[in-house]
Simulated scan of single mutants.
Amino acid sequence: MFAQPGTVLTGYIHYRMVLGVTGKALTSFGSSKEFVAAVRDTLTAHARAYEDAKILHCDVGPANIIITHDGGILIGWGFCRRLLTDDGPGSAAILLDQTKPQGRIDDLEPFLHVLSWVTLRYLDNTMNTLARATYLSKTFDEARIENGIASGGEHKELHSVGDAYILAKLTFKKTSSLSNLLREIAAVFRWRYAEIPEKERHSFTRIQNHMEQGTLLHTALELLMSVSSVAMQNLADASWLLDPLNRHLFPTVE
């Protein structure tokens, strides 16, 4: 493709970087445990980059995670940037509106998509071939061009809000706990897109103030706002995401 007259060209510098380690592609994992451990390791590295240097990776995906004999490594830092704010519109929302700045939560959400895409694509599960291909295509490959700008993400957002990101009856044939792990993580990210807007939150508060404390509706509103607040606080911290991954890798015997 050639540049059209009047097109503003962006200059780039081509760097070649040689890594001191070698590894295999994430999709070449030998077991589901090795795969989840690799994602856990890269999430830990991602958290350190943010906490120590306020740097976001901005390109988390299966191609930028490799597996070595020491665990997973997050590579491909070519699009990283220093974070100016702790807020952001969300990864599905980034696809919907790419003019918005990317925040930390947007960089954490792709770890869910990596876990989901790789497991659905490469592990035996209860979805038939057509259903799997359709789900993967609509959820992860959606793209369109509007006014010269590429966008997508509607199905990710709709699935997240509707609590249908991970199909309710989906199970993996060799590791039943993996589907529970995906649902647990997806359930928290769901609040990113189903968060109670500030205007409605104030309305709920006004309603509560005119109700007798302890009534069923008063308690329900209080619980709803509390769960939403806790979920949003969790989303701003990588530790909540590391916890279910570690519990999956090292289950306790009761």
Results as ranks from 00 to 15, higher is better:
T99D: 14
L130Q: 08
M1G: 15
V118E: 01
V188M: 07
Q233F: 06
L83W: 01
I55V: 15
G103P: 02
N64E: 08
L241T: 00
T22Y: 04
S137F: 05
A187E: 05
L242D: 04
I73D: 00
I75T: 14
T134L: 01
A238K: 02
G90S: 01
A143I: 08
A194G: 10
N128M: 10
K199M: 09
T175S: 04
T134K: 03
N64I: 09
S116E: 01
G88T: 06
G6M: 07
G214P: 10
S179V: 01
A25P: 12
V21Q: 07
T42L: 02
A92H: 04
H248V: 02
L115G: 00
Q208S: 09
P62Q: 12
W240T: 06
Y50R: 12
Y12I: 04
D97L: 02
N147C: 09
D124N: 05
E222C: 07
L130G: 04
L245M: 08
E200N: 07
L249V: 08
A131S: 15
G76Q: 04
Q98Y: 07
P89N: 08
N209H: 05
D163S: 13
G76D: 15
V118R: 00
E198I: 13
N234D: 12
N180I: 01
A220S: 04
F204Y: 15
V8F: 03
L108V: 04
I185L: 11
G148N: 13
E198Q: 13
R132S: 00
D41T: 14
H210R: 15
G214A: 08
T171D: 06
P101E: 13
S203N: 12
T175M: 02
L224E: 11
L158A: 11
V60L: 06
H113I: 01
E142T: 14
N125S: 04
S179G: 15
A186Q: 09
I207F: 07
L235Y: 02
V227F: 11
R144L: 04
H218D: 08
A143H: 05
D87N: 10
V60M: 09
T27C: 04
N128P: 12
L216H: 11
R121H: 01
L182C: 07
A168L: 04
L217D: 10
